[in-house]
Design a protein around this nucleic acid. Structure first.
Lengths: 242, 242
DNA sequence: CGTCAGTTTGAGCGAGCTCAACGTGAGTGG
DNA sequence: CCACTCACGTTGAGCTCGCTCAAACTGACG
């Protein structure tokens, strides 16, 4: 069997889209109850992915898009020089895998940074459903368009902003994504390593580490490994230009 | 009247999608003749945009996506620091404006770098048509997904590659987009200024200029203002890692 | 308690930035 | 027709931020 989510079928994880805590962030936004049920029918839930498990690998045939229910997924690919390029971190309520639509193969690989629960949404079924539920089509167009604009913001970061600005922005981004999920916006766990942060932001590990230390000295953050507390939101915001 | 394409209505520019030289690159790929006609019905063609004319401005309500028939369009936005960030150059046969879908407003502004002919495709009509023609829906999903992966490649450029690598890659990209349009892949006109190139690639004008000079000294290019000739494709390709 | 991945800190270097000057050519007005 | 302007491009000189290399620290896990 070559469908990872089916391999992972687990009778204990029966949550429906209607009940899912994330449903306001995820796909079913703007759908009627009856429509949610129809979407629910095509969504496949499996047993959790553990740290380092791949959800899919770059190059394999594109079949599904995915939603994060819990945990954190990293998207990355290996470029022609053999170097890894991290292209995103996906937190609960967020969709990933849409990079695969363009070429019918995944361009990125997706790997769990910690134990993560994932919903799989077979794309051909989603397309059919989109034809029948125009608001779902619209929602999906918007999702992809937002991915484009957020990539463009990262491009701006990389081409215009200093190391401090980039890191401040990332921290604030994770903070606000926490807030959307009704979690603390000041007490944050960074599920990714310093190396992943650096890779994503176009910086070396050493620079990332130094900036965290500097932010701590300046009283902007309290850093304890992956747990960080934002002590001065305004100060960070000023740095990040947001 | 607030629809720019209608303001520009020009009875002389009556080309249909079926006849357009660009139609293999643009939307109607994989459509039946009858379907092309239906798409053709919703496409609006206007009189040309001149250099410096805006097709749309960031922040205005999103209504349409656009296709370039001739000329060159630059996408850019002004970030919170008031600096311009160039997000793309659109050549004939390419679609732009899809950044607007996500928030119902254009995030970027689009401006003509030279006299350009543009097709306007009202998005709500396109959505309706996509519901009726699933291959159009699929085509559009793919278009957006490709935009995402090409943005991600730019991200990799910016975070991993040197000035020379970035510029070599841009030149090769324009060269291959010329080739798709059956134009010379070695004799190239760069429709954008050095400043735009630098802005797009996260470099200063001076660096761009120096790299062009260096490439010329190394016998990779012959540079004459905006006209460049690629003398050593393999050398460039080696630099660019593509 | 040794190992090993991840992180932190220090020291020195270099690619690309900043600032400044100069060259070039298209457009404008006398 | 020439003088002037102004945007754009090129070239030079020096500086700086983030990189590289190196070493030491931390904590999880066998």
């Amino acid at each position: 069997m070559n469908n990872p989510a089916v391999d992972r079928k687990c009778p204990h994880s029966q949550v429906s889209c209607g009940d899912c805590r994330m449903n306001a962030l995820c796909l079913p936004l703007a759908l009627q109850n009856e429509e949610i049920d129809r979407l629910d029918d095509i969504v496949q839930r499996g047993r959790p992915f553990h740290k380092e498990d791949h959800v899919y690998n770059a190059g394999v045939e594109f079949k599904s898009v995915y939603a994060v229910r819990s945990g954190c997924i990293k998207s990355y690919y290996i470029n022609d020089d053999g170097q890894e390029q991290v292209t995103g971190f996906h937190l609960p309520g967020e969709i990933f895998g849409i990079d695969g639509i363009g070429h019918n193969r995944y361009v990125n690989s997706a790997i769990a940074l910690e134990t993560s629960a994932i919903c799989e949404i077979p794309f051909s079924r989603l397309e059919e459903l989109s034809v029948e539920i125009p608001s779902l089509q619209r929602h999906f167009f918007q999702l992809m368009s937002k991915e484009i604009t957020s990539d463009q913001q990262l491009i701006t970061q990389l081409s215009k902003n200093s190391a401090e600005e980039r890191i401040a922005t990332l921290i604030l981004s994770i903070s606000s994504r926490n807030a959307r999920r009704k979690l603390s916006s000041t007490q944050i766990r960074l599920p990714m390593s310093r190396a992943d942060i650096g890779n994503y932001l176009g910086l070396t590990v050493e620079t990332v580490s130094r900036v965290f230390s500097r932010f701590q000295k300046q009283g902007l953050l309290a850093v304890d490994k992956k747990e960080i507390e934002i002590l001065d939101v305004d100060g960070l915001r000023e740095l990040s230009n947001n």
